[in-house]
């Protein structure tokens, strides 16, 4: 697997979430994803960016265009230095929320993508990487 191109942006306020959606849309179009896949990727990015702002105190988003054989993909990595998630399994359950959302952010974005990786340590932060292949 090779990284063709990458870019990092910081996500600190709720206004940045709109910027995340725009840049992720631009990358998905460039990589040739179908309209439905574009919509899924942008929606997943919007969910995770909001989680990062609301619960992680903001952080960084890294976009990477991937290629592996004839496949091409887009990987988005969200990394914050917030309080971390004590129980990841619980956080991944539909409808579980510590805030006032619907609790679909993590589980929902996992369903929208092909790959989902989460790493979190209490007191250190959370890193979530999601990938979509075409």
């Amino acid at each position: 697997m090779a990284v063709q191109k990458d870019e990092v942006m910081s996500v600190t306020s709720s206004a940045d979430i709109v910027l995340v959606r725009q840049i992720v849309r631009k990358w998905s179009v460039e990589l040739g994803f179908s309209l439905i896949d574009q919509t899924k990727i942008v929606t997943a990015a919007s969910e995770l960016a909001r989680n990062m702002v609301d619960y992680g105190g903001g952080g960084k988003l890294r976009l990477e265009a991937l290629s592996e054989g004839i496949r091409r993909g887009l990987r988005l990595t969200f990394e914050d230095t917030g309080p971390g998630i004590p129980d990841i399994d619980l956080a991944l359950k539909d409808g579980y929320t510590t805030g006032n959302g619907l609790g679909l952010g993590l589980s929902g974005s996992k369903r929208l993508m092909n790959e989902f990786e989460i790493y979190s340590r209490v007191g250190e932060g959370t890193r979530i990487a999601i990938t979509k292949w075409r």
Partner: peptide, 14 residues
């Protein structure tokens, strides 16, 4: 609502 939006919302669980 656009078809792509509807499909995505359902997959999201909403």
């Amino acid at each position: 609502m656009q078809p792509a939006v509807a499909i995505t919302l359902v997959e999201l669980g909403l």
